[in-house]
Amino acid sequence: MDPITVALPKGRMQDDVLGLFCAAGYPTEAESSRSLVFADKTGTLRFLLAKPSDVPTYVEYGAAALGIAGLDTVREGGHDLYEPLSLGIGRCHLALAGPASWRERDLRREPFLRVASKYPHLAQEYFERRDLSAEIIYLTGSIELAPAVGLADLLVDLVESGRTLRENGLVELETIMESEATLIANPAAHKLRSAEIREIIGRLADVVALRKVAP
């Protein structure tokens, strides 16, 4: 059988994620992660390293059977995927934030809302759910800058510790969704190679459960 291809997020989460696979019985050579595609020592898995926001795309198109991505990224893209396991790492939440003065303001009474975000779909969905209409300004980084220079009134962004917000004189107004690193699967691959994939998910789940007990 061909190895199962797993798309991993390159960068910040990479080591944590490889550590998780190692603990689940799929160890890799330390230097192998310098290349973009490499196998684990057992030859069961083939890893590919992709930009974190591209991981769901690799999996949706079936170029990888499995992948690991933040739930925020998965939902923002509106991908048609399975999310069989939450991994308990990379926890954060998507929040609506803005200057402290907005704590006192009622969004329903604002004639006009301008919101900067890296997550235009999730932001739009949130405002629609609250029956509000907002103009979403799509930015790809340094979202905290937008309210300071008058580009937007509010922002929707990921919050981990809240430090970045505080440093920019902003406060969190509301939580939109919780997010963490999530194992995603291509539905067709999940069905066609279900025994192998079930085995991988089972082993990862055991590691995640163990870590929850003794972090």
């Binding site: 949706e60 291509n186 539905p187 691959a189 066609l192």
Partner: peptide, 9 residues
């Protein structure tokens, strides 16, 4: 119906 090699039903 799913087929080996196709990511869609």
């Amino acid at each position: 119906g799913y087929v080996q090699g196709l990511g869609l039903a």
